[in-house]
C-alpha cells in the first residue's frame, strides 16, 4: 500500500521534476552571480524549495541585508503556502499523523500543492513523499547544474524554457474551468485582478499580489457559488 502510493507520487511528480530542473537551472546561475558557491546554492534550494523566496533571499544575501529583512521578505513572499497548507489540511488521510504532517510540510510548493490538491479523495503521507522526493531532486539538481555550468544552454533556449512551469499551471486550471462554471469565474477573476494590480499597483511585491488576488477571487466564488460541505469520505485514495 505504502509502496503503491509512493510510486504514484513519484509518477505524478515527473512533470514537476522536469519543470523544476529548468527553472532551478536559472536560479543556480543567479545564485552564483550573487556570490554563492555551488554548494551554497544547492543548499539554499534543498532547504527552501521555493522559487520566488529563494530569488529574493539570494538578493538580500548579495546586498548584505539584515536578518529582519530576510524574515519579512520570506513571510510576505511565502505566505501563500499557509493558504495552501490550510487547504491541504482538509484533504489529508487519517494516516497523516503529526510526525507525517511535520515531515510533509517541508514540501508544500505551488506545483506540489497543485497536483496533490486536485487528486480525487484523500491523500496519504507516502503519496506526498513520492511527489516531494522527485520534485526536490529536480530542484536541487537543476540548481547545482545551473550554478556549475553557468550558461551551458544558449540564451534563446533557456529563455523559451522560462514558460514551461506556467504552461503546466494552465494545464492544471483549464480542464476544471471548462467543466465548472464557478471555477472559470474564479480563474478569470484572479487573472484579471492580478493583471490590474501588476499595472496599477506595481509597488506591491509579487508574492503579496498573488495572496490578495487569489483570496479575493476565491472569496467572491465562495459567496456566489458555495460548495457542498464534503461528507466524511474515508475511502483511502492517493
Amino acid at each position: 500500500m505504502k509502496r503503491s502510493h509512493f510510486l504514484k507520487g513519484l509518477l505524478h511528480g515527473i512533470p514537476i521534476f522536469l519543470g523544476y530542473l529548468s527553472v532551478s537551472f536559472g536560479f543556480g546561475i543567479l545564485a552564483v552571480k550573487s556570490g554563492l558557491s555551488v554548494t551554497e546554492a544547492a543548499a539554499v534550494s534543498l532547504f527552501n524549495l521555493t522559487s520566488a523566496g529563494q530569488a529574493a533571499g539570494v538578493g538580500i544575501i548579495a546586498a548584505n541585508g539584515s536578518l529582519a529583512e530576510m524574515i519579512l521578505a520570506q513571510i510576505v513572499i511565502n505566505l501563500r503556502y499557509s493558504l495552501m497548507s490550510l487547504s491541504l489540511s482538509q484533504k489529508l488521510d487519517k494516516s497523516f499523523t503529526i510526525p507525517h504532517r511535520l515531515a510533509a510540510s517541508y514540501g508544500i510548493t505551488d506545483e506540489i500543492f497543485a497536483i496533490a490538491s486536485v487528486q480525487p479523495g484523500k491523500i496519504t503521507p507516502w503519496y506526498m513523499y513520492g511527489i516531494i522526493l522527485i520534485s526536490t531532486f529536480g530542484w536541487v539538481l537543476g540548481t547545482a547544474l545551473g550554478a556549475a555550468a553557468g550558461t551551458v544552454l544558449p540564451a534563446d533556449i533557456s529563455d523559451a524554457l522560462g514558460i514551461m512551469l506556467y504552461g503546466m499551471f494552465i494545464a492544471i486550471i483549464i480542464p476544471p474551468a471548462k467543466k465548472e462554471h464557478s471555477v472559470l469565474v474564479g480563474v478569470l477573476t484572479a487573472a484579471a485582478l492580478s493583471v490590474a494590480m501588476y499595472f496599477l499597483a506595481p509597488f506591491i511585491t509579487s508574492g503579496f499580489a498573488v495572496i490578495i488576488c487569489a483570496a479575493a477571487a476565491a472569496a467572491l466564488c465562495a459567496l456566489i457559488f458555495p460548495v457542498k460541505i464534503p461528507e466524511e469520505q474515508d475511502g483511502e485514495q492517493a
Binding site: P176, A190, A191, A217, A222
Partner: peptide
C-alpha cells in the same frame, strides 16, 4: 477555489 485562483494569479 483557492488552488485555482492561486495558480491563475501566479500565471
Amino acid at each position: 477555489y483557492i488552488p485555482y485562483t492561486v495558480l491563475s494569479a501566479m500565471t
